[in-house]
Amino acid sequence: MRVRFVLSQIGNGLRRNMAMATSVVLVTFISLTFVGAAILLQMQVANMKDDWYDKVEVSIFLCPVDSFAPTCAGGEVTEDQVQEIQAVLGSEALSDYVDEIYIETQEDAFAAFQEQFGEQDWAQRITVDQMQMSLRVKLVDPELYQVVADEVAGRDGVEEVVDQRTILEPLFLILNRTTVMAAGLAALMIITAILLITTTIRLSAMSRSRETSIMRLVGASNLFIQLPFMLEGAIAALLGALLAIGGLWLGVRYIVEDWLAGTVQWVNFVSTSDVWLVAPILIGIGIALAAISSLVTLSRYTKV
């Protein structure tokens, strides 16, 4: 009897406040879509870091014959200098940072070059002598590039230290800025959602004040009076969350998986399975929104 009674109360409330309930659903939908998008973007960034930071390395270019760099004043790098640099990289102080070192000789560089550009006309005229010898260093944590660079840069025989990670940075910057924007919009929309849910519950409570006063009179408990209002808010917010999950799923399915992943193949994109990871978070936030709003409103409008 009780469950049925509460359910019929909720049904009545939602029907009477149809427009408000719909707006709550829509606002929650939009705000949670932004939240979800922000989370997915961060997942994408993490994905890309995982993939690429494994591959990026620090290149220490050694002095070729005709370099103008001050550290190359002694002409082409000597065997002793190469060994000295390798000793520094292999030293105790850097052992926590350096994972692996290997030497790319002029021949190796030439082979790689030929593989990449060999079919071009101009590449035919390049000889092995023109290639540059370098040390390739794989770091334990690519973010700690600076520590290694500081040790090596400026030594005799080192022309330049290049962190390949810097090539990727602009991309991450864009993704991170987008995340901040999405998160900012999400925060604004969440505030709107809370205000809207609060107003909805308040209206609902006022339009049913006669009913609740009678229920109170015949001894209905606080929870029993407030539960229908809370559930109304929760159901609307939950619907919004489900819509947001659906929207994100469609977005990832058709824009990312079907189109982006087909066009840009060198990136490992987020997939619909990631959307399912985000889903519980969104549902949680939706329910929390409704709960906070209910607590704020109901303690004021439906007191015993």
Partner: peptide, 30 residues
């Protein structure tokens, strides 16, 4: 309040509910 019944001058009935439902609500809510 479940041990106290209350009657008012203005009846305080729910106008959209039948006579039966108006009385039943007192039992349903408890």
């Amino acid at each position: 309040r479940r041990q106290i019944g209350t009657v008012f001058q203005d009846f305080r009935l729910l106008n959209n509910k039948t006579v039966f439902d108006n009385v039943a609500i007192a039992l349903q809510v408890i």
